[in-house]
Amino acid sequence: MNLTHSTMRGSVKIVAVGNLDLIARGRPAEFRHRGLTLATRPTAMAALLEVGRDPDSIVLVPTNLNDMPLTEFVDILHSLAHVPVIAGIVPGCSAQAVSELFDHGISSTVALPTSPGRLADAVRASRTPEQTEELVIEVGNLTLDDARHRVTWFEKEVTLAPKNFEILRFMLVAHPRVIPLQELMKHVGDNPQNRAVRARVAIGRLRAAFSDAEPRHDTPIETVHRIGYRLRL
């Protein structure tokens, strides 16, 4: 989670499409110092071949790619090569085009031409959670995987909105203690209004999510009348 450039081991290969001058600002050695090996290819096709040869690389695509529609290329990279794609934003590129790229699954962006530091940040941002520190809480039949934002109960996946997920994590950490409503109220977001009802409603949503996932078991959230709630696992 807290990777800095000094802790980055080995070297990451970046396959960039286009002319080195237009892409990088700085000498190759400076990039290597950050753990990045830059390989530029003149066309999208050539870059694709390079990725085929080295499937662990990351692709940097400038938004003014001209030998192929940009989004199509991104899709091809994802579906054929399964590599993360960083979009290199060229001055004059519209915000809408960028958001469209994110819809097509790019992992991060960087302004072109890029400095070694900027590119290293973009590479870090494109790392998937698998490479980060993992937090999995498991109590009884309930598992909460923080990094993947997943909750399973009796092996069934429980679908939760982010806020409710936070509350469940808090309750799991506190397990088996009873959590008074007042304490729960602190975890329902920043808005100071109507915290009580939002906490109660969140509990209701959690219960609904649990019984949707596994109707045969009673939901694990227990009301402790006039005090609060507790997980019974």
């Binding site: 109507n194 009580a196 009802v197 409603v201 509990i203 959690l206 009301t223 009348h225 709630y229």
Partner: peptide, 19 residues
């Protein structure tokens, strides 16, 4: 505020937290 923070009846509390 009273109803949602300190309901006196168990049924109220159950209903407002989805039971």
């Amino acid at each position: 505020t009273q109803i949602f923070e300190h309901p006196t009846d168990q049924r109220t509390e159950d209903y407002i937290s989805g039971r």
